[in-house]
Every structure is written in structure tokens, then in C-alpha cells.
Amino acid sequence: MRLSDRVSGAALVALGGLAAWGGSRLPAVPGQDVGPAVFPMLIGFGLIACGLMIALGVGHAFEAPEEEGGGRSWWHGLWALLPPALLVLYMLLAERIGFLLMAAAMVLVVALAFGARLRLALPLAVLAPLAVHLVFYRLLRVPLPEGLLAAPW
């Protein structure tokens, strides 16, 4: 997602405004001049200033010229959301269906997304979760959810 400096600068101004506003509503500590509100407000004003400067193109000269990614269509960029989406699914489902199955599904999907053939993706989806389970569950004693399929150890 490549945004123009105007858009990202405006977003920063908005974020800074929200931070300053949210900070200013925090309750003060009785008998103390500098309460919990000061820091968020300082940061908020800083962000507003930075956002304005970025939107106006200040400091742009320092940036390295960026290489263009070529004429890919915009929906191609949505591919990038696959890994975080899988992480969210992992958070939601791992307890229920268990680590091994969830991890296998995750590895399989990502491997296929990177253009792996089934010859590579399938063995990887079986072996990688087992190996990770062995290291984390047996060696490091991290409690991984069992779910529908328990590991043989």
C-alpha cells in the first residue's frame, strides 16, 4: 500500500489530534502538575507538526529514490494481507482445532501463495508443524493446544 506523502501526513495529523484529545481527557493526579495527560499531548502535538511537514514535502529530499514495483494491479497488493489474516485465524481457531492441524493449514496456504508446487508444499505442511511442535512443546515446554489431533509424543 503506497500512499502519497499528503495522505500519510494527513493520517499522522489525525492520529496526533486523537492522541492529544484522548490525552487531554485523562484525569489529573491531585497535587501533581505533570499528570498522565502531558506525555500523550506532547506526542500528539509532535505528530501533528510532523504530519503537516510531511504533507508539505519537508525532508523529502533525504529519501532514497524508490524503485517502482512495476505495473501490478492494485488487488495484487492485497496478497500482502494473507500472513496477518492467517495469524488472526490462528489466534481464533488454534485452541479449537489444535496446533498441528492449524499449523499445517497455515504452512500449506503460505507455501502455495509463494508458488510452491504440491510436491514441496505438502511434505512441508506435515513436517514443519511436527518439528516446531517437537522443539517448542518437548524442549521448551510451551503449552501448545492439542485440539482435534494430538501429537504422538
Partner: peptide, 27 residues
């Protein structure tokens, strides 16, 4: 191949984040 490395990295991200506090929120 990246197709073999990246899935494992992502899996390690999920497990590693979870392992720090046994808290799904970290994921």
C-alpha cells in the same frame, strides 16, 4: 526456495508470540 522458508517463519512468529506469555492476544 522462499516458498519453503517463509511459511516456517510465519509459523514461528505465531508460536513464538504465543510462547512469550501464553496469551493469544500476543498473536
Amino acid at each position: 526456495p522462499r516458498a519453503a522458508v517463509m511459511p516456517v517463519i510465519l509459523l514461528l512468529c505465531a508460536v513464538g508470540a504465543y510462547a512469550i506469555g501464553n496469551n493469544p492476544f500476543a498473536v
